[in-house]
């Protein structure tokens, strides 16, 4: 399993892929950082990293399918999946190896973004605990998105289609909250309750405010696991019905 993980991480850095996505990520992050600073005198909006996390995530979330689109779709297209289908590894191991590889690439991008709090710390004070909480929330929410992206990639043999499906899923993830708060859904309390349970945004909101709660942590981890298990089922199912 480790061999597959290592190979996946390497393949991100062998192609310009990881670099381009990281650059875009940093661009998004720096733009919200700059706009945060420039709005500082207006005193209407207080500058805080939680806001930056919140803003940048709305753009960044659409980069995640670009990272995940190749994971399974490309292998299926070029018929390289036989190498791990015939190797003494299980499909859950493969799925988790690929997930951890994307997660690692993502973690590297987050480490790069530490540059901004460091710059801020030079001329002001950064509240460490709040920042850490924001980062944790950011990371957890991304894990859910990465898992969803991988699942979309397992559905098709076309990486572009996987990316498009991924984007659609990301829109759903982002707007589920808005949808829950819409008048229509609010009028049906039963439905709104269910949707609210699945809405990730409010939970991320809590994290970005510097509020850490165990239930949110469990929520993100269990959703990620559930999506990954679903991916395993999709791959197994396809193996049975191939032809």
């Amino acid at each position: 399993m480790f061999a597959l993980y290592k190979k996946e991480v390497q393949s991100f850095f062998c192609s310009p892929f990881a670099y381009v996505v990281s650059a875009l990520f940093l661009l998004v992050f720096s733009l919200s950082f700059i706009s945060g600073i420039s709005n500082m005198d207006s005193s209407v909006l207080k500058f805080s990293f939680s806001n930056i996390f919140y803003n940048s995530f709305f753009y960044f979330i659409f980069l995640i399918p670009l990272l995940t689109m190749r994971t399974f779709a490309e292998e299926r297209k070029s018929k390289t999946e036989t190498i791990w289908l015939s190797a003494p590894v299980t499909i859950p191991q493969v799925v988790f190896a690929k997930f951890f590889a994307v997660a690692t690439v993502f973690l590297m991008m987050m480490v790069l973004s530490l540059f901004f709090p460091l710059v801020a710390a030079l001329h002001g004070t950064v509240i460490g605990s709040s920042l850490a909480c924001g980062y944790l929330g950011f990371f957890l929410w991304s894990m859910v998105c990465i898992a969803i992206g991988i699942m979309m990639s397992a559905l098709t043999d076309n990486p572009i289609l996987a990316a498009v499906l991924g984007e659609a899923a990301m829109i759903l993830v982002i707007f589920l909250d808005n949808f829950t708060n819409s008048v229509l859904i609010q009028s049906i309390p039963f439905l709104s309750k269910i949707f609210a349970w699945f809405s990730t945004e409010t939970r991320f909101g809590a994290f970005s405010q510097g509020l850490f709660s165990l239930s949110d942590l469990v929520f993100f981890i269990s959703i990620t696991l559930a999506v990954l298990i679903w991916t395993v089922i999709i791959i197994e199912k396809r193996r049975w019905s191939r032809g």
Binding site: L4, S11, K79, T80
Partner: peptide, 26 residues
């Protein structure tokens, strides 16, 4: 197993690929 279409990753170097495959096979 050598399938009909060899499962090689086009973006890898031969040696890296074989190292990876050896790792995968334990």
């Amino acid at each position: 197993y050598l399938p009909e279409i060899p499962p090689v990753y086009p973006d890898m170097r031969v040696r890296d690929y074989l190292n990876f495959a050896a790792g995968l096979k334990g």
